[in-house]
């Protein structure tokens, strides 16, 4: 199993390098001079040229890339053109906020999704089933900004229970976390329900009932453990996408996170910042997949055997 994880880690490094190269090359293919944008309309041509040379943007792309990678390995991702601060510093601060937001959102989504999924499956076509599946359909189909604004309207504007935006304390995270997790909760509860219903048809469920397990016991100890396999994969992927920045949620609730940083970088043609955020997103997605694979190995003995 350890060997397997190492192999996947190796593969991940190659993927990461490939993505870094692609981002790097693409950003240099797009027309327009970032330095000119940075200096404004009325900048002197000579100044622009000097600045371009200073930033190393006049060098061939491969040299720029090698420089970038060697810097990145030392933790230096360059300095943001628009904000004038090191990219690593900016991303560090933003990532802290994004991480907290993602954790809150994921906890909310998983707890709600799993609980609703199990209770819906426990009584197929029962009241809970129809209710939860109806609500979850809403969860899956409602756009985030709408959920976010509804929440703001009800809980902040109307009831004054929670701050309307900003994250001065943990209460500030509640609304954005619910808005962000709402969608995931919907899809997780539907996946948990349908997987459980499939598994409840399996022969080993009869065996477990024959042992004297109650209906609830069978659901929790036998069916759920098996249902976890696809659910874990979905959760890991969802979490990595939550971590890589929730552009809309962060914007609506004015949270200074990775998503907002990326939008800023795109708008300002801030190449180092854009490369930094894009690379970071890739890394998080790769790690999420890796985590899903490892969990799969732990949970499913059949896979453990094959590798």
């Amino acid at each position: 199993m350890i060997r397997n994880i190492c192999r996947r880690l190796g593969e991940s490094v190659i993927v990461l390098l490939g993505v870094a190269l692609m981002i790097f090359v693409m950003l240099r293919i797009v027309p327009g001079n970032p330095v000119a944008t940075m200096m404004g309309e009325h900048a002197d041509l000579a100044v622009i040229e000097r600045m371009t040379a200073e930033l190393g943007l006049d060098q061939p792309v491969y040299i720029q890339f090698i420089r970038y990678i060697t810097g990145a390995l030392k933790g230096d991702f360059g300095t943001s053109y628009s904000l004038g601060k090191p990219v690593s510093f900016l991303m560090g601060t933003a990532f802290g906020n994004t991480l907290k937001l993602a954790l809150f959102a994921a906890l909310f989504a998983w707890a709600l999704g799993i609980a609703c999924g199990i209770s819906a499956a426990a009584r197929k076509n029962g009241l809970a089933d129809h209710l939860f599946m109806g609500v979850s359909l809403m969860g899956v189909s409602m756009p985030i900004f709408m959920v976010a604004m509804l929440l703001q309207y009800v809980f902040a504007y109307h009831l004054h229970w929670l701050p309307i935006s900003g994250i001065n304390d943990w209460r500030g995270f509640l609304l954005p976390a619910v808005a962000l997790g709402w969608n995931s909760a919907g899809s997780i509860s539907r996946l948990v329900r349908s997987t459980l219903l499939d598994i409840l048809q399996e022969d080993y469920i009869d065996t477990a009932r024959g042992k004297g397990r109650t209906q609830a016991g069978v659901l929790i100890f036998h069916a759920f453990r098996n249902a976890l396999l696809p659910v874990i994969t979905m959760m890991a992927l969802q979490f990595s996408s939550l971590l890589s920045g929730a552009v809309i949620t962060e914007t609506v609730f004015s949270i200074n996170g990775i998503g907002r940083l990326a939008v800023q970088a795109i708008a300002g043609r801030d190449i180092p910042l854009l490369e930094g955020t894009a690379l970071f997103t890739t890394l998080v997605v790769i790690l999420g997949n890796l985590a899903a694979d490892c969990l799969y190995d732990i949970l499913d003995p059949r896979i453990r055997k094959e590798v």
Binding site: E202, D203, Y204, T207, R209, G210, K211, G212, L299, D300
Partner: peptide, 22 residues
């Protein structure tokens, strides 16, 4: 439930699928 497994038990048809795989 307290009867099943202790006073009456069943050997099911399909040994290949009657055990929990995990």
């Amino acid at each position: 439930c307290s009867l099943r497994g202790s006073e009456v038990s069943m050997i099911f048809q399909e040994p290949m699928t009657s055990l929990n795989p995990v």
